[in-house]
């Protein structure tokens, strides 16, 4: 999936609506999440917030054999949300072992009080375990 979005309120294209708890212009809150520029950016509310070509530390044993993958983020595949946590699946490569592929859902930031806050780029990212 190239481009997904989460619409928390007000978009007929989305079947699920999850108010954030802040009043917007239409009485609810709409947070638009998109993958833009051929997978180069995650846009939150029409602002490019998260870019490719960063190095992310991953604790995701399913991606490669490294204890801690050091992933070059090459392309965002899709973006979504779990609770207040904005997540993405990315295509990339572990620079420790060379493994390439698409990750599971990884956090990129949170929406707090209607504002997006990106995760510290040096943090270790983990897939949410059920």
């Amino acid at each position: 999936m190239f481009s997904s979005r989460v619409v928390l309120d007000g978009d007929p294209a989305c079947a699920h609506r999850h108010p954030l708890g802040r009043d917007g212009p239409t009485g609810g809150v709409t947070t638009r999440l998109r993958v833009l520029d051929d997978g180069a950016w995650i846009s939150v509310d029409d602002h490019r917030e998260v870019r490719v070509s960063e190095l992310w530390r991953l604790d995701e044993p399913g991606f490669c054999g490294c204890d801690l993958a050091d992933l070059v983020v090459e392309n965002f595949q899709e973006v979504g949300v779990d609770g207040s946590r904005v997540e993405t699946r990315v295509y990339g490569q572990c620079i420790e072992c060379g493994e390439t592929g698409v990750t599971d859902w990884l956090p990129v930031g949170r929406v707090r009080g209607g504002e997006f806050v990106e995760l510290d780029r040096s943090c270790v990212r983990r897939t949410r375990r059920e």
Binding site: S4, V6, V7, L8, H18, G80, S84
Partner: peptide, 15 residues
């Protein structure tokens, strides 16, 4: 507070 995974699949694409 949001809950659940929301609308990850959108067809067709934004573009």
């Amino acid at each position: 507070m949001w809950s659940g995974v929301v609308c990850r699949d959108t067809m067709p694409t934004d573009v």
